[in-house]
Amino acid sequence: MVTIYESKPVHETTPGLSRRELLKRGGVGALLVISGSAVISPEHAWGLETSALKPETMATLIQMARDIYPHDQVPDKYYAIAVKAHDEQAGKDPAHKDLIERGVADLDLKSGKDGYTGLGWEEQRVAVLRGIQDTPFFQAVRGGLVVGLYNQKQVWPIFGYEGESYSKGGYMARGFDDIEWL
């Protein structure tokens, strides 16, 4: 099972964690850390445990998800939730596991010696993605994100979308015609 869990910042819970891979994101300075079978965000206190895919693969998918649909105001956590379905599917379907693992390996190969997440600038990573955008791997990841990312109710407020409105009586008294700048 993949779980996204809220955790204490990593240095509090796992002192001396061996950071066997650090995944740097260009310019931003945020870090995702691999620990055992989990991808952990020490700064933002969440973790994602994988069961079928390698945690490194999952970390790459998270970065890839952000590069495909970059929203600087959306935290990594939601990208992690958006791609975790691939771990679940990989657990049930060896062909899917193969598609993702090979796809990520290929992506790393095309990205040079430090792999995909070793590329510091989004532009560099996007250039690699452009080269594979017609592959089934890319399409599986991108296609899954359309619903996986944008159908998370938690991200809607970030975009200013208010969602369900019936229980609040619609917008009759809540600004359906409140535009003022015209």
Partner: peptide, 21 residues
């Protein structure tokens, strides 16, 4: 997200959605 530019991705797409409201 599904219908604005199906298959589209990258900043041209996402900066449009950033201004959804």
């Amino acid at each position: 997200a599904a219908f604005l530019n199906p298959g589209g991705w990258g900043r041209s797409f996402t900066t449009a959605l950033d201004h959804y409201d």
